[in-house]
Design a protein around this nucleic acid. Structure first.
Lengths: 174, 174
DNA sequence: AATTGATTTCGGAAATTTCTGAAAGAACGA
DNA sequence: TCGTTCTTTCAGAAATTTCCGAAATCAATT
């Protein structure tokens, strides 16, 4: 009887999955991964690899790789059901937890390596005794200092509970 | 006489340019653009297109496209000199200003479109009168709310002066 | 208006990333 | 053990992104 409502919902989810995938691309995340994430975030129950393959019309290898990548990011959990050998996948739906997870992961993948580069470049330029050498060294130090600051902020925010973050936000925005 | 110091500096800059370019890739920014940015950030004086071409050993088209892209991002300024028909390029070196610029641009390119998607999906799912429809709508609303919050935070931070940001940071980190 | 020097554009090449399809591997039950 | 079912891997194909090189355009100068 709810054929129409179901169709509408299907259409809405398809739209979300497609658009979220496109956004992912702009974000430097691969399209399929973003689509799977969107699909799982809006799924009423965990999905199997075959469900994902069927819904997005992608190959097994692609589905598998990206599902595991999402698991590695900590955005998706594996669920096993009694008497069923398949793995099912379930996305974290709490937006604050998603945010924290992404923030942690991006810090690890983007901020920490940057710090390494900056420290190294500061070190090898430390003793250059010309005005230009000093300027270069200073620039490295300023970048390093800032990235370190960003890193600490990220840690701090990532450690917040949802409620506290909202509280802080209220103060900051009010 | 400062041949050694100059060589050392050249080596340090090359290292920075190369590594920053590699980082850029991970960040979803094209390597050349990140390299040019690194080069200009550590240049003692503005560089011409030919300088950039020569230093990075890239084609004119590539140099030109990415320089203009950096200008579009607001990270690089065009400088003209009297009696010289060439354009020179100069990067913003103040880390806080760089951060603000990137934050603004990413908000515009990534957050605002995401908001659009979420609002649209919330709208088309608003009237679906099934439990699953409600759940989908709720998920959209939660995401929308969060992204809106992020958007406002970004605006707020982007409006801060360097000094004030540090002050707030001290409070937050202390 | 012709020359010179600089900027911009763009078609196709090259490099990189992503995806498929199939085969190999593991886990389990009969 | 053997067969079944699901998971994992991976080589090559496809798609996408980036880059080169050269031609076209523009603008200042003679």
């Amino acid at each position: 009887m709810n054929a129409t409502a179901e169709e509408q919902l299907k259409q809405a989810r398809d739209e979300f999955v497609a658009q979220w995938g496109a956004l992912g691309t702009q974000w430097g995340i691969n399209r399929t991964m973003a689509q799977i994430h969107a699909l799982l975030m809006t799924a009423p129950a965990p999905l199997s690899t075959d469900d994902v393959m069927a819904d997005l019309e992608i190959s097994r290898g692609n589905a598998h790789t990206n599902l595991k990548e999402l698991v590695a990011w900590g955005l998706v959990r594996i669920v096993v059901r009694k008497g069923d050998r398949r793995e099912y996948f379930e996305a974290e739906k709490d937006v604050w937890k998603i945010f924290i997870t992404v923030a942690r992961e991006r810090k690890r993948r983007e901020i920490d390596p940057a710090l390494g580069v900056l420290r190294k470049c500061a070190e090898i330029s430390e003793d250059i005794d010309t005005p230009e050498g000093k300027a270069f060294f200073d620039q490295m130090r300023q970048l390093e200092e800032f990235v370190e600051f960003a890193s600490k902020m990220a840690d701090r925010v990532a450690g917040m509970k949802h409620g506290f973050a909202l509280q802080m936000a209220a103060k900051l925005l009010g």
